[in-house]
């Protein structure tokens, strides 16, 4: 049995460089999914608080579906479903099969799930903003877009931040699922290391510790962002 310290070292005998590369993939997947999920979630929240009943129903169907399905199932449906769809479409033009890459499939699936939860967070944040804010902005002659950008959004972010930080931590953990469809993230890389070296407990333990470290770093970042978002508030 090889020495444990050789196994976890960097270099040809050790696995740390592979696992570090996996960590980069995990973090980039989460970071790439975040803006997608936030954007869709925000527009879903707008739709849910719209006066137009059809818009509300359509948005609610979306959330019911993607909050009710296991993330793993959503991932498979996106991965295989889009693959089949692309194959049908591309068959019209070329004979070459198109493969959807697992990073993109993961991004879409996790983004869709994230957005359906984020829409609820945004919706309750919208409810926390007084109607007087809209009326005040109107009295100042701001357009609807400027009202949203200058008056509502800054307050919305502050109200939505705790909920969104929770969703970020969940997203970070959910990226592990994408390893199942072949993305070389932390979990997959440590899985390979575990299989090759027969030290499963060691390497999956390392993977868990990396996720823990990532969430600790995130918590620190979130604390900082929360302080930043409250900079305009009066001290009490």
């Amino acid at each position: 049995m090889a020495d444990i310290w050789t196994l976890v070292s960097f270099g040809p005998e050790g696995w740390s460089d592979e696992i570090a590369a996996g960590t980069v993939v995990t973090v980039s997947l989460a970071l790439a999914t975040l803006p997608l999920g936030l954007l869709i979630g925000f527009f879903l929240a707008l739709a849910k608080k719209s006066e137009e009943a059809t818009l509300r129903i359509a948005a609610n169907i979306y959330t019911t579906i993607f909050r009710g399905m296991p993330e793993l199932l959503t991932l498979f449906i996106v991965y295989f479903g889009v693959q089949i769809l692309l194959r049908e479409i591309s068959a019209l033009f070329t004979d070459e099969p198109i493969e959807i890459n697992s990073f993109l499939a993961g991004m879409i699936a996790l983004g869709v799930v994230f957005s359906s939860y984020a829409s609820e967070v945004f919706l309750s944040a919208f409810r926390g903003i007084n109607q007087g804010q809209y009326e005040g902005a109107w009295a100042l002659g701001l357009s609807r877009f400027s009202t949203m950008r200058l008056v509502i959004l800054p307050q919305l972010i502050r109200l939505a931040l705790p909920g969104l930080s929770n969703l970020w931590l969940i997203l970070l953990k959910d990226t592990a699922l994408v390893s199942v469809i072949g993305l070389s993230d932390v979990l997959r890389q440590s899985g390979i290391a575990a299989r090759v070296t027969k030290e499963a407990f060691l390497f999956f333990g390392i993977a868990c510790l990396i996720y823990l470290t990532l969430s600790i770093i995130s918590s620190l970042g979130i604390t900082w962002i929360e302080a930043w978002s409250k900079r305009g508030e009066a001290r009490r």
Partner: peptide, 15 residues
């Protein structure tokens, strides 16, 4: 703080 999938692997393969 860790994914359920990683915990499951830790137990199943780690055992």
């Amino acid at each position: 703080g860790t994914p359920l999938l990683a915990q499951t692997f830790l137990v199943y393969y780690g055992a």
